[in-house]
Simulated assay, not measured.
Amino acid sequence: MDLDVFVSTHRAEWDRLEALLNRRRRLTGAEVDELVALYQRAATHLSVVRSSAPDPRITGRLSQLVARARSKVTGTRKASWQDIARFLGQGFPAAVYRARRWWVPTALLSVAVGVLLSWWIATHPEVQAAFGTDADLREMTRPGGEYENYYSSHPAASFAAQVWTNNARAAALCLILGVFLGLPVIWILFENMLNLGAGFGLMTDAGRLDVFLGLVLPHGLLELTAVFVAAGAGIRLGWTVIDPGPRTRRAALAEEGRAALGMAVGLALVLFVAGAIEGFVTPSGLPTWARVGIGVVAELAFLAYVWVLGGRAARAGETGDVEEAGRSAAAPTAA
């Protein structure tokens, strides 16, 4: 292709498109139609130049024109309070509800593994020796020891922020790494259950399980549920790579990935609540029954939120994906 001839042939169209884009007054109906037509032609011209004669100067100008025209034609949409309300009232709980067949079994299996690890550690002194000497273990489990002081060793606000950051990171990793067939997610879950099982096992052997439960349950119920939801969604994303169903693998991953991204945002809010409980309630002077009661109420509230609001939204067709206008165009696929 002769680039000079091509440019001289179409330069007038590009100049006219630029003039319409620079127009400050409102465009008439005829001018809007002309803008759309010129935008489509410019996009075609850009494709031709890139494939046949990739001149940086011409490609740069056309790219800028096409981007500006696309923004003018499609418009820009700003997030509003309605979007936030829709996400919290429909999108997020529906995504969690739809993923229940993945995260509920994940939670049950993880808890079973945690219980087995706790029993193994509590009943095998040689395993306990791997966590430290007898003196170290006594220091960890004694009244006022490391396990109890952990929750009051820092100011409540900074401790809550630190806990929230760490937990949100773990949940995000479960969602992101799920695409690798879910294998990294399983390892993250095992590490969490091992750490929790070690605490349960060592405190059980020291005869102070009731104290440990009073420290863990207030925040741990909601915190672990959020991690299990993230892990289940991550494993589902990994399974999508293997079996995308009637969708193309690319479309399936895009849809599930967008839903997973929304879940990451929602779970960050859930973990913020869990972090606040861990920072302010767990180390407080409230009696154990009151602290545990707050944790149980928070957990039941979240489950009701998912099953009531999420179930209703899911039955109405909500998937947790972005609205159709925000998705890429997709070709139809056979069922």
Results as ranks from 00 to 15, higher is better:
Ser110Cys: 06
Met203Asp: 00
Leu137Gly: 04
Leu17His: 08
Gly29Cys: 05
Arg291Gln: 09
Val296Asp: 03
Asp243Arg: 15
Val241Gly: 12
Val227Trp: 12
Leu46Asn: 00
Ser153Pro: 00
Glu324Phe: 04
Glu323Pro: 02
Ala95His: 00
Val36Glu: 09
Thr240Ile: 14
Leu215Ala: 09
Leu286Tyr: 13
Val32Ser: 09
Arg86Asn: 12
Leu300Asn: 05
Ala94Trp: 04
Val49Thr: 04
Ala274Met: 11
Leu222Trp: 06
Arg249His: 06
Val36Ile: 14
Leu222Phe: 08
Thr282Cys: 00
Tyr147His: 10
Val32Ala: 08
Asp205Lys: 06
Phe180Cys: 06
Pro218Ser: 07
Glu318Cys: 11
Val111Trp: 10
His154Arg: 14
Gly317Ser: 08
Pro93Val: 00
Ala37Cys: 01
Glu148Pro: 05
Leu65Arg: 09
Arg41Pro: 00
Trp289Ala: 12
Val270Trp: 06
Ala156Thr: 08
Trp103Asn: 05
Ile188Trp: 08
Gly91Glu: 05
Asp2Lys: 12
Val5Gly: 03
Ala254Phe: 01
Ala129Asp: 12
Gln40Trp: 09
Asp134Trp: 10
Arg291Ile: 06
Leu253Tyr: 11
Ala231Ser: 13
Asn22Gln: 15
Leu215Arg: 06
Arg138Met: 13
Val322Ala: 07
Ser152Ile: 04
Glu223Arg: 01
Gly317Ala: 09
Met1Glu: 11
Ala334Lys: 14
Leu196Pro: 02
Val7Asp: 03
Thr333Asp: 01
Arg258Lys: 11
Gln64Thr: 14
Thr28Arg: 15
Ala135Met: 10
Gly199Cys: 01
Asn166Ser: 14
